[in-house]
């Protein structure tokens, strides 16, 4: 089985995001970048499928040179090959990224394309659906369970307050949600092996896109409210405040 996993490098979840002085961009100094957590589930699923069916796992990522460290993390888990689509930065419009990824994916003739359900930086949650239309392939998003028998895929996806069981056939695109599997840690051997793999670099001219970020701002700061009390005896007063002041219960 020939599998591609599209990954993104993102700031880790503990990062306090700082903006540049003009509020036009995120200040990248002091950011610890990681492999997008949802992409780890995608990589793990690809590796499990490879272990079961043989084949090859290719990691594909778009972005500036720093993203090669996220690519190495995925390789260290056990992926075989990697393609880095060079770009000065991540495009603001996910459709631009989708177009570039689709061009590379078309060349690879993959049976299965996996990715995380969302990147935790820009949170667009669009990539799997965009790729599906670009490549004219079936896609299932937010997948927590995946079964493949021959060409037939049965995937369980999470929807608000319920699950859907979706059927389609290979080749297909699957967007992984937490719960799909338990991603492995890279072994020391895996890390050493990953260092030796040549990452194929691709230069590509990217389109301009149709989503413009006018400016970034910090969310309105919530000021600390009142401490109603320091024991369970404060409960009646808390409930009164919620009922009469906040009017939410």
């Amino acid at each position: 089985m020939n599998i591609a996993v599209c990954v993104k490098q993102v700031p880790d979840t503990e990062t306090r995001i700082k903006l540049t002085d003009d509020h036009k961009a995120v200040n990248e100094d002091d950011i610890n970048f990681i492999l997008n957590p949802y992409d780890e589930f995608a990589v793990e699923e690809a590796l499990q499928l490879k272990e079961k069916n043989d084949g090859e796992v290719t990691i594909i990522s778009l972005g500036p040179d720093r993203v090669t460290s996220a690519i190495r993390s995925a390789l260290a888990m056990g992926a075989d090959k990697a393609i880095h689509i060079k770009a000065e930065q991540h495009p603001a419009d996910p459709a631009v990224t989708a177009e570039a990824l689709a061009a590379v994916l078309k060349e690879g003739n993959y049976d299965l394309i996996l990715l995380g359900k969302q990147a935790i930086d820009d949170d667009h949650t669009q990539m799997a659906s965009l790729l599906a239309e670009e490549l004219d392939l079936p896609a299932v998003t937010v997948v927590i369970k995946l079964d493949i028998e021959g060409d037939k895929i049965t995937a369980e996806r999470e929807i608000d307050g319920a699950h859907e069981v979706v059927e389609c056939s290979l080749p297909a695109i699957i967007a992984a949600q937490r719960g799909l599997n338990e991603p492995r840690y890279a072994s020391l051997k895996g890390i050493m092996r990953a260092k030796k793999i040549q990452i194929e670099a691709k230069e590509m001219s990217l389109a301009d896109g149709q989503l413009e970020i006018v400016e970034f701002n910090y969310p309105p700061q919530k000021s600390a409210g009142k401490i109603v009390g320091d024991s369970a005896d404060a409960v009646p007063e808390l409930l009164r405040l919620l009922h009469e002041e906040a009017k939410v219960i």
């Binding site: 990062t15 949170d123 989503l211 413009e212 006018v214 970034f216 910090y218």
Partner: peptide, 13 residues
């Protein structure tokens, strides 16, 4: 964006 750590004001063209 970033789960609410920043807010982006955007336009679709």
């Amino acid at each position: 964006m970033y789960a609410g750590k920043v807010h982006a004001s955007i336009r679709l063209t």
